[in-house]
Design a protein around this nucleic acid. Structure first.
Lengths: 206, 206
DNA sequence: TAAAAACCATACCGGCGGTACAGGAGCGGG
DNA sequence: CCCGCTCCTGTACCGCCGGTATGGTTTTTA
């Protein structure tokens, strides 16, 4: 019962890389089993069909994504007491982490699914939606903490501000992929960071 | 030779909608010819293969995209003399235009291609890259005009600032698709607009 | 009016997603 | 020791799809 999990993980590893490079439609099951060194029957033992592969892939991706955010922003929280400084540091750490990926960010599965909606069932689309909502909640929490201490220069809707983080990341991924400039994504995050800094930096004189 | 163009356009129309909903891999040629009311031979008369369909689709999409940007920002330029006010108005107009799409933005073909790179030849990827570079040039031009008049509160790299426009649009599209909230995209553009306003609003006293 | 453009009809190929079914290796528990 | 469960392998098959080939027909235009 351990061996099975291992094979399953191997399939998911291979599939994730392939899907991010070629999309779901462009990734053949035969190609996955060839690279995994498994047979077709073996594959279908683990996943009933491509839809279930996508579901497992997406769930795993989101889980890992959350873990990374947890780590980065809790580390930033430990280093900085002030919620604004902590958030700004978190963005910096995120930018650095993305900057260190040699080939750039491999792509976001949530975005991939967005451009394939009709191919998958509602369950997958709902998982995708929940992932985006979780991002929103996460960053809204941070902005609320900040706003308990700082007053923004202009009034902002907190949800929209929170969504801006996801927007910049998703957009940055697309842009660096299109431009073939891996540095664009971390740069865009830093630009956003400057905006946030500007928004809460006290004009207050003394 | 006019009839040919018409049929070609009809194929592209059908294909564009299908590709944005299901991706390239998920869109079958047989499905396109069924909806267009053409035969397979007829299709392959117009496009040698799927790669050429993609190329035509992408070129047409980019062309149309540029046209819309031209219209919006030249209109804004006519209404406002000041480059900052003109740019801010342009973003507002863009947001309103996107807000009026009943089903939300159908998706960006450039982004779709990004998540399929390995499926297409280098030519298509280069077209995609040039499109993103054109966006950069367009918005950099606007920011340069603004900076000739206004001094930003913080120093910014003009290219990165220009890229931020594309980032917000691409990211906003992904987010509204994931959330199934069409309003997110126009909202995010307005959030970015506020940031730009904040960046150049004169702290200058008289 | 004749060529060129814009198709239609048919047949075929190989790859791929998916199904069905038969069986086997390893392993843990009664 | 063998039963049953997990975790596969092997083989055969189906239908859809991308793509090729070939030959013919209509429509348009020079």
């Amino acid at each position: 019962m351990r061996k099975g999990e291992e094979t399953r993980t191997r399939i998911l590893d291979v599939a994730e890389a392939a899907v991010l490079q070629k999309g779901f439609g462009g990734t053949s099951i035969e190609e996955l089993i060839a690279e995994t060194g498994i047979t077709k029957s073996g594959f279908f033992y683990h996943f009933r069909d491509k839809n279930e592969l996508a579901k497992a892939l997406l769930n795993r991706y989101i889980e890992n994504d959350e873990r990374i955010y947890d780590e980065i922003f809790s580390r930033a929280r430990d280093l900085m007491d002030d919620p604004l400084q902590s958030f700004l540091l978190g963005l910096k750490l995120l930018s650095e982490l993305l900057s260190d990926l040699p080939n750039g960010h491999p792509g976001c599965l949530v975005a991939t699914i967005c451009y394939y909606e009709r191919l998958f069932d509602r369950e997958i689309q709902e998982i995708n939606r929940q992932a985006a909502l979780t991002w929103r909640r996460r960053f809204r929490g941070m902005f609320e903490e900040i706003m308990a201490v700082y007053t923004p220069r202009e009034p902002f809707d907190v949800d929209q501000l929170a969504d801006m983080v996801s927007t910049v990341i998703e957009g940055g991924i697309v842009l660096s992929k299109a431009l073939k400039e891996p540095q664009s994504l971390p740069e865009q995050i830093l630009v956003f960071r400057s905006f946030v800094k500007m928004l809460f930096r006290p004009v207050q004189h003394a």
